[in-house]
Amino acid sequence: MYTQALNVKDEGPALVDAERDAAFQARIDRDEKIEPNDWMPEKYRRTLVRQISQHAHSEIVGMLPEGNWITRAPSLKRKAALLAKVQDEGGHGLYLYSAAETLGTSREELNDQLLTGKAKYSSIFNYPTLTWADIGMVGWLVDGAAIMNQIPLCRTSYGPYARAMIRICKEESFHQRQGYEIVMTLARGNADQKAMAQDALNRWWWPALMMFGPPDAESLHTDQNMAWRIKRFSNDDLRQKFVDATVPQGHHIGLEFPDKDLKFNEATGHWEFGAIDWSEFKRVLAGEGPCNRQRLAQRNKAHDEGAWVREAALAHAEKRAARRMMQAAE
C-alpha cells in the first residue's frame, strides 16, 4: 500500500467543534459521501491530504523503477504494455493530485513536499529493478499489494478520493494480472528465465510484505481513521489477505517463496509466514534504502530541467492573452 506514513501521529490541533463533529461523524456512519464544499474537521482534511498526496507521490515515484526497463523490454508487445502501464501510473498520480486539490492544497505545494523529501511515498519504490523479471514482480506483487488496500478505499468517505480509487483500481487489477503473466512466462521459460524469476521473487517478497506498514501491535492509533472510513482494514489484516491470495499463485507456477516458515494452517485457512525484518523497513523509511537518494534526485532533476519549459508555457500564454486584448481593443 502506498500510504504507509499514515502511521505517523497527527501533531496538529485537536477537534474544536464537538457538535459539528458529531453531525459529521453521523453522516459518515450513514455512509454519506463527504464532498469538497462540505464542512469537515480540520484533522480529517489534513489526514486526507496527507494520505491522498502520499498515494499520488507513490504513483509518480513508482514510474521510475518501471520506467527503467522500457527501453530494454524484451519484445515489442512487452515494451508497449510497459510504457502504457507506466503511463497509467502517471495518470493515477494526476487524478490523485486533483483529488487532493479539492481539499485546498495545490499540486505545486504537494510536489514541493515530495521534492524536498518532506513528504513520504511507498517504501517499495526505493528498491531497484535489476532484471526484466523485476517488472513482472512489480506488477504481480506491488500492484497486487496496492489493490488490497485500494479496493476498500473505493468506499472511503471522501467522495473525490473514492471516485478516483474506483477508476484507479480497475487499472491496478489489470497491472497485477499483466505482471503475473510476465512472471508466469518466465517461470515456464528456459532455465535462465526461471532463475531470473526466482531471483526477483527472492528480492521483492519481503519488501512487498512491508508495504502494508508496521504490525498492528506497533501501529499508532488508527481508530479515528477507521471511524472516518479513511482506513478500512488494519495493516496485519491486509497483509494476511495479500499473503493468502499470492502464495498459491506463486506455487502454481513453480516458484518458491524465500521464507522457510511459510506454511498453510488447515485450521485457520491462512498461510502463516515468518518474521518480517522491521529494521530494514525502518532504514528504508528513514531514507537509507537502496534507491532513496537516486529516486529523489531523479524527480528533482526532471523538475529542475523542466523549469524553463514551464516558464516558457506561462510566458507564451500571457503574451497570447495580451495580444488578444490588443486585437479586441482595435
Binding site: M63, T71, A80, Q87, L94, G306
Partner: peptide, 21 residues
C-alpha cells in the same frame, strides 16, 4: 519512451507516452 520519468510536467509525461505508444 526514454522521456519516461523525466518530462517537464506530469501532463507532458502522459502526452510523450501517448506519442511513443
Amino acid at each position: 519512451s526514454e522521456w519516461c520519468g523525466h518530462a517537464p510536467v506530469l501532463e507532458e509525461e502522459l502526452a510523450l507516452a501517448n506519442l511513443g505508444l
